[in-house]
Design a protein around this nucleic acid. Structure first.
Lengths: 225, 225
DNA sequence: GCTACTTTGTGCATCGGTTCACAAAGGGAT
DNA sequence: ATCCCTTTGTGAACCGATGCACAAAGTAGC
């Protein structure tokens, strides 16, 4: 250990971070099936990645494997969970309780590990007061109060596109710095704030692009992919 | 035919393809507001990217700009749409009509341009026969027949995790090669098939990772990001 | 203890993507 | 027609991520 007494380097590549949840899911599955240790090769297959990549990813967290043996499943679950911050409890607010918001509120995997839907918020008086997934839907006027009171640190935007930026600005104003945006708009935020975007229509368009090629677009060329 | 007689190079970088829908959306907004031409700088801002990147992206489609002026909005909309394959009509089937499937079926932006939800399919007899978003929910036994009959070329998987692989195998067997997967599993498919994955829980975990750092994880270090 | 075998962790070459910076190309004014 | 201004398109440097291939480090058997 040449440079520091810290096992983990604090600079984990973004691409690695994006894959850790994948490994974690595969590991959970293995733990449930009673698997005690796993090789990088097996775990890589389960997560759908190359084993060298997996090893390099894990090496960014520290040296948690044993040469000649593999990784201890439980231990690795713990280390990845801790690295991702899943050992603490995150309060999530969902703003916009339309079809999508409702689906998210009811989505099991959402609440599963580390995350807890702490508030549902909407502007429509028709919806406010309803109970969805065991939670009372609160009015958008209460947004700031609810976020503060419940200690919300992650906000999920499932509003119509027009409303997203305004809601975004308001939650940032009360200190939220992590936003998961389902509205099809480019949010403008200070760079202290993290926004992740999920856009169904974009995913479809990307599929259509590749499908068109396969089906033989103009000037159809046999391609190797 | 090495380079010049074809306007478009057939090898568009994946990263570029992923951004084209973003440009397209920004352009549609501009067209609606009556904007006739736009500079790479303005369009880049609207799409939330760097202007050099935008120009390089567009240059992969061909030389559709005018130096000193910018891009013709209508024309660019057409070119990008065509490149993405949105000038044709894609029949989409949604398998799994739970909360999420329902949300997707009702999601407006989904159907908007080029895509049409052509079938809803579920295994639950309770749901089969219901009308959702104007469509009759059909039984999973009809899967192959429905896909063929309606000319479905893109399948959206919104089933529980356990069912996803089986449904996936079946639709691939009848010739589907584009799948949008919302189930939290790694699908195994032949490499002639394109799978795109949307995983809500992974997105949250990535946010939690960054949030933890900002909030000061163990050994909190001031970082420059 | 020594040898044979397994599997990790990583140095290194490579690749795709981003960004800078500028020459080339057009428009408009005079 | 010429000059100046704007904006595109792209060569080239840079940066992060990927994947190969192997030494290091461990286990197991004798």
């Amino acid at each position: 250990m040449k440079s520091t007494s810290q096992p983990r380097d604090r600079g984990i590549p973004e691409a690695t971070v994006a894959r850790l949840p994948l490994y974690l899911r595969a590991l959970h599955g293995m733990a449930e099936r009673g698997v005690a240790t796993v090789s990088s090769e097996d775990l890589a297959v389960a997560a759908g990645v190359n084993s060298a990549k997996l090893r390099k990813d894990l090496s960014h967290l520290g040296s948690y494997g044993t040469r000649g043996v593999g990784y201890d499943v439980e231990y690795l679950v713990y280390q990845i969970s801790r690295e991702l911050g899943l050992t603490q409890d995150w309060a999530v607010a969902i703003v916009g309780v339309g079809n999508l918001g409702r689906a998210l509120a009811n989505y099991g995997g959402f609440v599963s590990r580390g995350f807890r839907v702490a508030a549902l918020i909407d502007a429509d008086p028709e919806v406010v007061g309803d109970t969805i997934a065991g939670l009372n839907v609160e009015h958008i006027d209460e947004l700031e109060a609810v976020v503060k009171r419940r200690g919300v640190s992650i906000v999920v935007l499932a509003t119509p596109a027009e409303a997203a930026q305004a809601v975004c600005d308001r939650v940032i104003a009360v200190g939220v710095t992590s936003i998961l945006n389902f509205a099809p708009v480019v949010l403008s935020v200070p760079d202290t704030v993290d926004v992740r975007k999920v856009d169904l229509s974009i995913e479809l368009q990307i599929l259509a692009f590749h499908e068109q090629r396969k089906a033989g677009g103009p000037l159809m060329a046999v391609d190797s992919q």
